[in-house]
């Protein structure tokens, strides 16, 4: 077989606690991140993602402790994003136990931060995270949790960050995030078909079929979701089984 499509549960973390909101408002507390990470480790998740969603505008630091405590008990790949502005921020997360670091807002104002991180720590640990909304002729980059428009074309931005050294692109539709209406497959595919680095589809999963479509129609290498897993509607094994049934290579359980 070949490299497996990855199923990645994403834990949105604020102040050291897991939260998940609908379009980033009305946050619901869904528990302790380390406990959730252990549960996903046991369940056979292919990777885990922590997004520190308040990090851009609140005090940082709690996430490092969460990462450190998670890495002590989970032997699975961990991506951490949120509030990463410099290569030094990335270094702190990598030292705490993250395997990959996702850069979002900082890569909009200063795309070179992606090159800084890739050159110091390797492209394999540098994830460029792009939040996009549909506009008339494509998609536009938004920052700060989807609140701030930038006027930048999302596809061109994603491809530029890959050129600068990002080893992976995490593509989130802010129109779909929290709606459970499925990924913006056209957005994911528009990027995935034009880059040689892996693309992670994100934002909007409501059913297992949405995960499958992310790979088969969005051409993503990995599919990220939150609520569908956190609230027990589907297990990681269910997700793998649905992908396998569609002919997508996945890990065996």
């Amino acid at each position: 077989m070949t490299v497996r499509a990855r199923v990645i549960p994403c834990l949105d973390v604020a102040n050291g606690r897991v939260v998940k909101g609908v379009n980033f408002v009305d946050l619901i507390d869904a528990g302790d991140p380390v406990q959730q990470a252990r549960a996903y480790d046991k369940a056979g998740a292919d990777e885990l993602c922590f997004l520190d969603i308040t990090a851009s505008h609140e005090a940082r630091g709690t996430i490092l402790d969460v990462v450190r405590r998670t890495a002590a008990v989970c032997f699975m790949p961990l991506t951490v994003g949120g509030g990463v502005r410099t290569a030094e921020d990335a270094r702190a997360l990598l030292l705490a136990g993250a395997d990959k670091v996702a850069v979002n807002s900082a890569a909009v104002s200063r795309p070179e931060v992606v090159a800084d991180i890739a050159e110091r720590f390797g492209a394999q640990c540098c994830v460029a995270s792009i939040d996009a909304r549909r506009v008339e002729n494509g998609w536009e980059v938004f920052t700060h949790g989807g609140r701030r428009a930038t006027g930048i074309d999302a596809v061109a931005h994603a491809l530029r960050l890959a050129e600068l050294g990002a080893g992976e692109l995490l593509v989130t539709s802010m129109d779909r995030d929290g709606t459970r209406g499925g990924y913006d497959l056209e957005l994911v595919r528009a990027i995935a078909d034009r880059t040689s680095v892996p693309v992670v589809a994100s934002g909007g999963v409501g059913t297992l079929g949405d995960l499958v479509a992310g790979v088969t129609q969005g051409h993503a290498s990995a599919v990220l979701a939150a609520s569908i897993f956190h609230f027990g509607e589907a297990t990681i094994a269910d997700a793998h089984a649905a992908l396998a049934a569609a002919g997508v290579p996945v890990r065996t359980h």
Binding site: M1, T2, V3, R4, A5, R6, D46, E47, A123, Q124, G167, E168, S196, V197, P198, S221, A222, R251
Partner: peptide, 14 residues
């Protein structure tokens, strides 16, 4: 991986 649809970095379970 030129000429294939394999992505580089090789990232994931194999």
């Amino acid at each position: 991986a030129a000429g294939t649809d394999a992505k580089v970095p090789h990232m994931g379970w194999n």
